[in-house]
Design a protein around this nucleic acid. Structure first.
Lengths: 349, 349
DNA sequence: AGCATGCTTGTTAACGTGAACAGCCCTACA
DNA sequence: TGTAGGGCTGTTCACGTTAACAAGCATGCT
């Protein structure tokens, strides 16, 4: 009677057969596989009694829907992709976490692809890996100018959101780096410092550019001298090196420093300490990010908090809009950072 | 002649038709879809000329294999899952990154699931989310005792590797926390400190337990007094609070402190600084993890480096062994931490 | 009574791929 | 010359699900 006749040998009668499918559930519940499908997809056109019977059969057999079969027929995978630079950094890690949580909330799973390098080729590969996996949309946490540029050449038919992605044609969520840097600089000037030095991030990062621009333009607007920038790579080590270099070259008496992120700030703090320069008495310092450690630096660091979680959640919203059918917009969501004043800034002696 | 006759209306002749499949490639190359399949899977039984023609047709049409269809027929998804606690922490983030890189290398994609809480229920949910996605194996970065216990009740048919997962029945990769803690303690004793205080991690974390045990047993073995433990939650804030408490309660003169991770150590450092206690002159400090910032604390922190990347890669190896057919072993890989001596430890005055 | 309506269920046909098997042609060897 | 064998290609089917349509049945209206 069964269309797939058991090959009668008793030996493999208890063979580890494949996991049950809809037909198995249907047979047990005495309905057609279509009714099972309807129950699973919560379609209202199933009577209460039937639904209960199907549900019972499902749990008895331990039935799990086969996502591959579903994806094949619907053309939808309910999977999203996240491309990210260095998920070891606090910012990207926080965003990734927020994205994953929010995505699960609405029953999407999240697949990740990291970027070993920064060039266009690398991004292309990551993008390919994700699309051949049939993700329905991609969030790119690629704050490099180069990577973001590569994003423009991405196939038009896959929804994309860029995080901190500069001013490209893609929908974007970003923190207002420029604003934050301006605030930091103004704060230091208002404290009475004649000018403010800057330890910048890598020049090909969009965030680094904007923070530098915010700092520079505020100085210019206030008619102050603009000291030479020293550049790091976000790491504590590079902040240390940059501060050292700054101290050697100190032609003018710079008494305030805007450091492009908190990690470099701790390096700078160390260099200052070694040079016997007291913070904030002899040198004021402002960081960026507000990593959990910042509050416990010596002294506690004045910095700009970025709400990474918020950024992550917003970018997911933007992505889902596209996935659910809206055309690819140019929307750009900008989130202001929050200025957190602690003890690393003071008026000059 | 075509089996799927175009409905002749010229209006939708250029309709945005679905992405090309094997049959389309086959038609263009003048072969059967099976030959296309063979080319894709690198089977040797295809002549050079045919192969070239198929390849040409594939790139002309921009053909991408449909993973869902493939997964449906093969029963394999080429997707791995990673369950993790707080991917914002340096350790888990580093491991996740290493796992993803290594997995892509061998053409697996990685899907993530975070654990909002610590209870058994939460882990169950994460596990379910991943399995209903048909992952072929799961790496669980779940250093909680509770979560690890829940791992035992996981279905037998899905390959699993536990990272830092205590002594369960599952294959495990872990850093030798006990050894590291012993070393740290011995180092401090050999410097001449009478005993060593301990700021511990949360008691339900396996790592916290092992570090505490290593510290305690070394003290006992050396016949030293064992001071009361103060407990934090890994965060800088909790380290700060713990150190403050320790200073208030200081009945004996503790001159050395083993702090269970670097983040708490920076909090402790801050508390010590506020209390006017100089490190290492009046108090020696040892951390754990060697986060990138540790080298630039004031003073640079003596600590135990964990090779998170190594742990991640090894766990993937163990998982793949199972996925590729080996039975679930009980193998346990232990990686020693590396003691890094910097400036936060010295002999007592 | 006859028929439309709505609720519930079933039947059939895809979706795109790989496994299994069948078949073709050419060569080599008896 | 017949035939075995190997290299290459094609045909058919199954994977587990959803879409589209058909159909059964009770109800209520004309």
């Amino acid at each position: 009677m069964a269309k797939r006749p058991d090959n009668g040998t008793p030996t493999n009668a208890r063979a580890p057969r494949r996991s049950p499918g809809m037909v198995d559930v249907a047979r047990l519940a005495g309905v057609s596989h279509m009714t099972v499908s309807r129950v699973i997809n919560d379609q209202p056109t199933v009577s209460q009694v039937t639904r209960q019977r199907v549900l019972a059969a499902m749990s008895e057999l331990g039935y799990r829907p086969n996502v591959a079969a579903r994806a094949l027929v619907t053309g939808r995978s309910r999977t999203l992709g996240v491309i990210s630079v260095d998920t070891t950094l606090y910012g990207p890690a926080s965003m990734l976490l927020a994205i994953e949580r929010a995505a699960r909330e609405v029953d999407y799973s999240v697949s990740i692809a990291s970027l070993p390098g920064l060039d266009r080729r690398t991004l292309r590969d990551a993008f390919d890996a994700l699309t051949s996996q049939a993700v329905e949309g991609i969030i790119a946490i690629t704050p490099h100018v180069a990577a973001t540029a590569a994003l423009r050449h991405v196939p038009k038919d896959v929804p994309v959101v860029a995080v901190e992605g500069g001013k490209g044609p893609l929908p974007t969520v970003a923190v207002d780096q420029y604003l934050g840097a301006s605030e930091a600089t103004r704060h230091l000037l208002s404290l009475g410092h004649r000018t403010v030095g800057h330890i910048a991030g890598p020049s090909d990062w969009y965030e680094a550019q904007e923070r530098e621009r915010g700092w520079r333009e505020m100085l210019v607007a206030e008619g102050r001298e603009v000291p030479e920038v020293v550049r790091g790579d976000w790491s504590p080590r590079s902040g240390y090196a940059a501060a050292k270099q700054l101290l050697e070259e100190r032609t003018r008496n710079v008494t305030a420093l805007f450091v492009a992120n908190d990690q470099m700030a701790i390096g700078a703090l160390r260099a200052l300490g070694e040079a016997g320069i007291s913070v904030p008495r002899q040198m004021s310092l402002v960081g960026f990010d507000d990593i959990p450690e910042a509050e416990f630096f010596s002294p506690p660091l004045t910095t700009l908090r970025q709400e990474f979680g918020e950024v992550g959640r917003r970018s997911l919203e933007l992505l889902l809009e596209q996935v659910e059918g809206a055309p690819r917009t140019r929307r750009r969501l900008v989130i202001p950072p929050q200025f957190v004043i602690r003890d690393s800034t003071a008026s000059p002696e």
